[in-house]
Design a protein around this nucleic acid. Structure first.
Lengths: 245, 245
DNA sequence: TAGTGGTCTAGACCACACA
DNA sequence: GTGTGGTCTAGACCACTAC
């Protein structure tokens, strides 16, 4: 049975987007099986009463997501799954909540401090100038999982301790109207210092997973610099990435 | 002075691609400065003798790369730098060579073995069936940096030890006509076992950075499963990522 | 109000894969 | 040869931003 696709021209949602959503849902629900051909663009456009460029735009967005593959002379095929979500700038809090881990946050430090050389360089502010410093302990099922140190430029955000404990930093930023654009990350490992060990209830010298990240908004301004340590027995970085064509 | 843009209609290179390349080069060379407006699409199209959709396609490709930002009612701006390269599926060998680290590879194992349960699940082959197993020690400046264990489905590739020592595994795959599509990665940390410690000239229990990765081609077939350990004093994962809009 | 990007149309010709 | 996606055109109207 052919797919039941239709678009609503009275909706404010763009036509290509409506089509892309329906195709994605069909793939997710298995109504479009991996490896199957989508049917050619011209016929699909005619069937839906759309122009070919509009149909192409819908298909292209799913190709960009890695769900479809196009081959000239062959057709458009559904990728043999394995693809779920590309790497994205998600907060640890949301990741944990999505995994059903009942995350909790304890804000241990929330203050304004003079910027160290490292922080100043990362945020593009003057050394010794004011920056927000936040230190948080992230727990799952009551067990410490990560220790998060973040620095933010002054005046960017109202960092309320209560809200920091109820949600993630990125969610706070987005709801403050900040458009996140890109981030530069470095992931490594090292032995825990005595202070780190105590915070995370590990032994001194125990292996820790570390991440440093600077996040930029769409004007190129650095909006956050994070220095995080994770207990590797409790957390690892899982992600999917697509090969640029 | 306005940008000197031009397209060659006799070239087999698509017009939108020619334009995108020139804009990207202008950004990279600073002839288009961060924050500057690109000028509206209709005028740009008229100036180049192109249609607006073609110009839009060029601009869109740079937006996807994170180099430009479009705002309705405002215009198209060059992002305030910081953006260099998105996360991509590169080989450690190429990364090291690009950083001028004179990488070297010692192939320690290159044979066919029966698939373990883990390998069989990752590659989608029968447990106990034949798979290629490759173990390599990666060195930089003569120092061990990583120990790489890879499994590949049988018959996919001619795994010549000489070529494995001269280049990276991904380069070999691509030159064999395999179209890499996506990969699923997990990055973590743990203490070194006695065997791992000896391979990497570390102490037993020393922190190691670990990565497991399964790579898929565009038909959805798993083409490689890697289990790698890195010396965190010598290597960390550095990458940039873009926020999906 | 003026200017921008966002969406959409109805065609056209070409390059490539496959039988 | 036939069918597919890849590229390109010359318009149109709309939504949002800034003044």
């Amino acid at each position: 049975m052919p797919l039941d696709l239709r678009v609503d021209r009275s909706s404010p949602v763009p036509l290509y987007f409506q089509l892309a959503q329906q195709l994605e849902a069909a793939i997710e629900q298995g109504r479009l099986t991996p490896g199957s051909l989508l049917g050619n663009e011209i016929e699909l456009a005619a069937r839906l009463g759309l122009s070919r460029p509009t149909v192409r735009q819908a298909i292209q967005s799913l190709v960009d997501k890695g769900l479809l593959v196009r081959r000239r002379g062959v057709g458009t095929q559904v990728v043999h799954s394995q693809v779920k979500r590309p790497l994205e700038l998600s907060s640890l809090y949301d990741d944990l909540a999505a995994a059903g881990q009942r995350p909790a946050t304890k804000v241990l430090v929330n203050t304004v401090v003079p910027a160290s050389a490292t922080v100043a360089a990362a945020l593009g502010v003057a050394e010794g100038g004011d920056v927000h410093r936040v230190e948080r302990l992230r727990l799952a099922h009551g067990e410490p999982m990560a220790y998060l140190i973040n620095h933010l430029p002054p005046g960017l955000l109202d960092l309320d301790t209560g809200r920091l404990e109820a949600t993630g930093l990125y969610r706070l930023m987005r709801s403050a109207g900040i458009t996140l654009h890109s981030a530069r990350q470095s992931i490594g490992a090292r032995g825990a210092t005595a202070a780190e060990a105590e915070r995370l209830t590990e032994a001194e010298g125990a292996p820790l997973l570390t991440m440093q990240r600077t996040t930029f908004d769409d004007t190129g301004r650095a909006v956050e610099f994070g220095d995080h340590t994770y207990r590797p027995t409790r957390y690892s970085f899982e992600f999917q990435l697509l090969v640029r064509p």
